[in-house]
Write a protein that binds this DNA or RNA. Sequence first.
DNA 1: CCATATCGGGG
DNA 2: GTGTACGATATGG
Length: 821
Amino acid sequence: MPKIQFYPLDATYRVKADKPVIYIFGRAADGKTITVVDDSFKPYFWVILEQGEDPAAFMKSVNGMSEKVKDDVLTIINADKHKKDYLGDEVEAIRITVNQPKAVVHFRDVFRNKSEVKDVMEADILFVRRYLIDNRIVPATLHEVEGEQAKENFRTGYVIKAESIAQISDDSIEPKILAFDIETYNPEGKNVDSERHPIVMLSLYGKDMKKVITWKKFPTKHDYIEFVDGEADLLTAFKEAVDHYRPDVIVGYFSDGFDFPYIKTRAEKYKIRLDLGWDGSEIRTSKGASPTVSSTGMVHIDIYRFIKFILGGSLKTDRYDLTSVSSELLGDKKTGVDLDKLAEAWDNSSDLLDEYCEYNLHDSFLTYSLCEKVMPNIIELVKIVSLPLFEASRMRFSQLVENYLIRQAHAHNVLAPNKPTNDEVRSRLTRTFKGAFVFEPKPGLYEDIVVFDFRSLYPTIIASHNITPENLNRNCPPEKREHVPFEDERRRKSVWFCKSRKKFIPRMIEELITRRMRIKEIIRKKKDKMLEARAYSLKILANAFYGYLGFYASRWYSFDCADSVTAWGRHYIHQSIEGARKKGFTVIYSDTDSVFFTLEGKDKKEALSFVEGINNELPELMELEFEGFYPRGIFVGAKLTGFGAKKKYALLDEHGKMTVKGFEVVRRNWSLIAKETQEEVLRIVLEENDVDKAEEYVQDVVKKLRQNSIDLAKVKISTQLTKDISSYEAEGPHVAAAKRMESKGLPVGPGSIIEYVITGGKEKIRDRARLLDEISQDDYDPDYYVNNQVIPAVERIFEVLGKDIKETVAEKDQSKLGEFF
DNA sequence: CCATATCGGGG
DNA sequence: GTGTACGATATGG
């Protein structure tokens, strides 16, 4: 029988004659598209009987049950029993195998109401998911199917009726990606309306495809522009181009929420079928709070969602528009055209349309580049959770953990707990957790600072202390009980975990930690993009476990588990702090998993041996790591925010490298002169320990500001708009500047970077904001830059050093005035 | 103050 | 489709 190697990408099922048939779509190793048909798998779920009930009698009574519900015949085709781990106990669970997925729902409800049934389990794991898990099929990796060509009508190179399918290697596909983007007619500005306004341009970008389709003619040099006769033709041309290119992945930016729904609405107007599915089906929208759009076979990825939800935490940007994300990830950004004028240009068939087409293609290019860049991360997640790309690329952290656990539960003979009921969710939401310990730094200048932090603190606590619901206060001889070191005595007495045997969640997390350590070891010797993506995936997954245990909607939720993790965290950090103090070090700062202390004349080696001592006492997986040694550091009086004090400090290491946290230098909306002065003051103080010199430096800057000899580029302030100009309640200088730009016909909106300078005068600051091309060197206001930029940037640093820089500067000004008169 | 609604992204 | 989510912020009672 023929064998074909292929990479599964997507899967679905259909019921034929009351029998489910699985279809796996993918790319064969020879490049052709493939459909694999498998009708051998049956849906099932589990029943747990009440104590004392007879499994044999139950199985006999239910086996063969059959009911006709509407047009479906729903039948129990088998009932057998297996030893399974049910919430930590080994039980005889009864597996109910049925003829089709709908029968699961039906019999689930029937059994739930039976008095002899204690619980119904895994009756909500989707059929395709069940199939992939039970058959150990890992999407995006290399598999081999054995079977004959099937006579079914699919638009793929192969259609194989599978006799057997198996993963043959961990090698993953490099998917063929096609990005797309639309521009719409928008006479009402931001107010887009897919019912009334047409799509005027649509771009496609792939390795071998650069195309913009539009339906007004204008002169152009670009050979990638394809002119068609109207919007309907544009839609048809889009469909044909995608169909002809046959990508594995079609990608858009916010295409779940905008491009695809818009295209669908427009296509419906013309009764055009968007049958892009490899089975001939149309693209489908799923409504809800966050709608998705899917197509069978070809995988639709909305790269915005993946970047925001999965990579977001490790990016600096807090905005997820295409410009911000591209500039951070690719160092590129959208081309600047004014979209508010597109409708006008369209109406007049203006030559400007050529520029809009360039812009349209560039957005597809950025989307393509982003997708290509993060694809290793998507694929590694796919492999870990064993879900198709469509689902894996849309997951949140909680779903990532949950799907990983469900996948592993099957491999470890564990029954996945059920999802919480609405009532349960409500009650979970009322409880809050005590967080991490923070030791506030005393403002001051410190010498010989050593920093240590716990490597993966929460994951290692879960693994080391066996923290999991199945181990909480149950089935354990007293001598094996480990009480959680809560500060509250009652809680300490009442919450304990059994140490005797590693249970499911701790075992899973231990595996993640050790796998990641092995990979890191390999990467150290030889860099590898895929391995780095894998190490990153394992890290974010392990780190998400603590949050998952305390997440209200999770299957493995446990208030006591989540609360115990932070209690252990506080315990270990306190222990480290106390240990350091006993050895004669002075602890200056600590937050969650890190400790900063000063050597107090002792040798660096003594600090290292202290940590070695701590590590000898720690459980095996836990480790307090040496983070760095800093000959000098400064901690500055923190401004109280709603969440407590914000941390502000700067450290200088032995090689002269400065680490700055929480100071304005790292923020954008300060002028360069303020940032530079702050950085230089920090450098003089830390490197040379010379406060007088720092003071002189500031005085010199002030003098130059007063002479208006500081370059305009250094007094320029850049601020990013976060919303529409009209929706700002308080008009700050950046809003005033944005309005000036708008009045000059420059495109401004959310995401635009506004650059302005404050000029002299008696009006409000916002009325003195000017754009760079409106002013010359002498126009900036020295007073503003001295009092509102430079002084505030360095004030607290000098405060720590016992100086009032305001006074120093004022005196100098005063004496100068004296000389003058 | 707490509960409920809206937004995010996109043109 | 063996289904529907999340978290921050603004608004209203």
